[in-house]
C-alpha cells in the first residue's frame, strides 16, 4: 500500500463506481480484519463489511481530506458498524468486555493458517510483540478507544499509553521491514 489514493477518493466522491471498486479492492481486506477482530464471527464480519462499503459509498462526500486520513475515516466506519452490531444483538460480550480477548486470539484460532501467507506473517510478528503491546494495539487500533478510555482500560496514564503505543508500533514496523 502506497500513499493515500486521493484521486481515486475524489473520483468516488464524484460518484464514480470504477473508483469505488478500486477503493474496495484496496481497503476491503484491512477493514475485514478490523471488523472480524471486533465481532469475531466470519459470517457476521462479511455482512458488516458489505454494510461498511455501502456506507463508504453513500457517505463518501462527507470525507474531508483536510480533517484526517481516509484510512482513519473508513476505519471508524468499520469499527462503529461492528460495535453497533454487538450492541444491537445484545451480544453476550458487552462493550466493556470488548478487550477481554483480542485480535491475537483470532489468529491463533484460525484453522487455515497455512493458506494465508499474510496471516502467517502477522502471527509471527505478533508472537514477538510484548503482551502489553498486543493489548495496546488491540484497544487503540482495533477497538478504536480514545487515549483517555484506553488509559482507563489498561490502567496507565494516557501520556504513557501514547508513547508506549508508538514504541509498540515501531517494533511491529521493524519486524515488518525484516
Amino acid at each position: 500500500m502506497n500513499a493515500q489514493p486521493d484521486l481515486l477518493i475524489a473520483r468516488m466522491q464524484e460518484g464514480s463506481e470504477v473508483a469505488f471498486t478500486r477503493i474496495y479492492e484496496r481497503y476491503q481486506k484491512a477493514l475485514h480484519g478490523v471488523i472480524f477482530a471486533i465481532v469475531k464471527k466470519e459470517d457476521v464480519a462479511q455482512e458488516i463489511l458489505q454494510d461498511v462499503f455501502i456506507k463508504i459509498w453513500k457517505n463518501a462526500d462527507t470525507y474531508d481530506s483536510n480533517s484526517g486520513r481516509f484510512f482513519t475515516w473508513i476505519l471508524n466506519i468499520a469499527r462503529n458498524a461492528s460495535v453497533d452490531y454487538l450492541r444491537s444483538k445484545r451480544h453476550k460480550n458487552s462493550l466493556k468486555n470488548l478487550s477481554s480477548d483480542n485480535f491475537v486470539d483470532i489468529i491463533v484460532s484460525k484453522s487455515d493458517l497455512d493458506e494465508q501467507t499474510n496471516t502467517m506473517f502477522v502471527k509471527q510478528w505478533v508472537e514477538k510483540l510484548e503482551p502489553m503491546c498486543i493489548k495496546i494495539i488491540d484497544v487503540i487500533f482495533f477497538k478504536g478507544f480514545t487515549f483517555k478510555d484506553g488509559a482507563e482500560e489498561l490502567d496507565m496514564p494516557s501520556g504513557t499509553l501514547k508513547t508506549r503505543h508508538r514504541k509498540c508500533l515501531n517494533s511491529l514496523r521493524e519486524m515488518m521491514v525484516n
Partner: peptide, 22 residues
Amino acid sequence: IERAYFKLAAGIAPAADEIAIY
C-alpha cells in the same frame, strides 16, 4: 504507520470471496 496497521489488519482478515462480497 498506516501501512503497518493496514498489513496487521489485512493479516487478520478471514478468507472470503471478495468478488461475491463486492
